[in-house]
Amino acid sequence: MNSSQLLGITTFAYLFSAVLYIAILVFRAKKIGLFATLVTAGAFLVNTAGIGLRWYESHQMGIGYAPLSNMYESLVFFAWSIALVYLFMEIRYKNRVLGAFSMPFAALAMILAGLKNPDIKPLIPALQSNWLIAHVITCFIGYAAFAVASGMGIMYLVKDRRTDKTAAPLIASLPELKVIDDIIHKTLVFGFLWLTAGIITGAVWANSAWGTYWSWDPKETWSLITWFVYAATLHARFTRGWGGRRIAWLAIGGFVSVMFTYYGVNFLLSGLHSYGGN
């Protein structure tokens, strides 16, 4: 059993988990709720084991490093973070319907990882730093929270659109708008703290490697743009009382900016972060 196989299993397990949660929502099959949770928790453990094994394998190859250094590894870690954030929310809010809007992101991240080359490649000198670990972990916990927040944003809009008309039973099983709104807000706040920490750890690392903590490279700039978008969103909410549909849309829009920072910049723009694209 090698790490690629474990992570392959993870992909199917997350996909299965997403399907189960959607089934709970669509068929109101509450009976399979516990099963869905167990599948998700199991998938999360396999994902964790996969990352751990990959770490071990890299040491076996004599090039030991934390597996957070390229697009494949970051996607795997992104999926792991999404599952972690989701499981935390399921326990906290005791609501499995949230899974239908969260776990598809984890499955999608693993599918995208599957399209990448999973070979373990040694680290180039620029990446040989403990700041790599701090930077990637903080960023991706933030990204995962924003992914879940955008899922909740979609859920809000779905629920809100349908309550105008006849309340279908499907929609009725979604949490109340007020509750979704609160979850979106809490997730955004959580993500914002981690995004900030991610930008800061990146800056400290850049300074120890190049002597500049900020150089307006496209990746840096896009992370700042994302930060501005969420900062504006939080101000609109805290001080101008925005909520509901508008914040739901901003949660979705913010996540588009996150995805561009993470994914788009590597393919469409060039810069110092180019190693993230491999």
């Binding site: 307006w216 496209p218 700039t221 743009i225 501005f228 978008v229 504006a232 101000h235 910049v265």
Partner: peptide, 12 residues
């Protein structure tokens, strides 16, 4: 914040 966000795009 929004103007900073939008104009920052130009340089990328």
């Amino acid at each position: 914040l929004l103007i900073l966000a939008t104009t920052s795009v130009i340089g990328t």
